[in-house]
Amino acid sequence: MRVLPIGLSFLGALAMSAQAQAELWTPVAADSTLSFSAEQQGAAFEGLFNKFTATFDLDPADPTTARIEATIDMDSVDTLYDERDEALREPEWFDVERFPEGRFVSEQIQKAESGYLADAFLTLRDATQPIALQFTLETLPDGRLRFEGQSVVSRLAFGVGNGQWENTDWVGDAVTIRVSLILEQSLP
């Protein structure tokens, strides 16, 4: 029977795809946000980056094998107050003219108490620093994935707010980054 080997290899292929298979996932822009919370004058305020892209080389069954990369358009910063956004684009902060993009690259992912912990490198301006991103991943009924991540970083470690802004009396050093994404599988 010639059908048998063909049938077997078909079964084999099925088995392989059921195993850990990284697939390419990307955020659905309309349902995804990259936001941050920082402290000014003793009070927290929220901001967004309206433009960013990300790719997830990801097996939903085992996120520890994933590789995540993201690029942030620093000019798209939006703190819901134009004057502050303008100030953030200046050389003392993001310096978007010289450093238009921020980069995030995951290094290693491990299971955490709840969800996962990604050791990653974040590049802002010309500084690359290790950061830890805590995240959860959930498969939605429609097959898409919900990714919720959070990381607390030091703005000063990246030189964001240099010169007189190294003073943290009125603009705090700690910034909480929040990633809330809906991922859909895209063709590689």
């Binding site: 305020f45 703190t79 107050y81 502050r84």
Partner: peptide, 22 residues
């Protein structure tokens, strides 16, 4: 309206009374 929450002497933060609107 400028998304600058007010924190009297840093003791506590007052809620924003209106949504940010330039």
């Amino acid at each position: 309206a400028a998304n600058f929450p007010v924190s009297p002497f840093g003791w506590f933060t007052l809620p924003n009374l209106v949504a940010p609107d330039g």
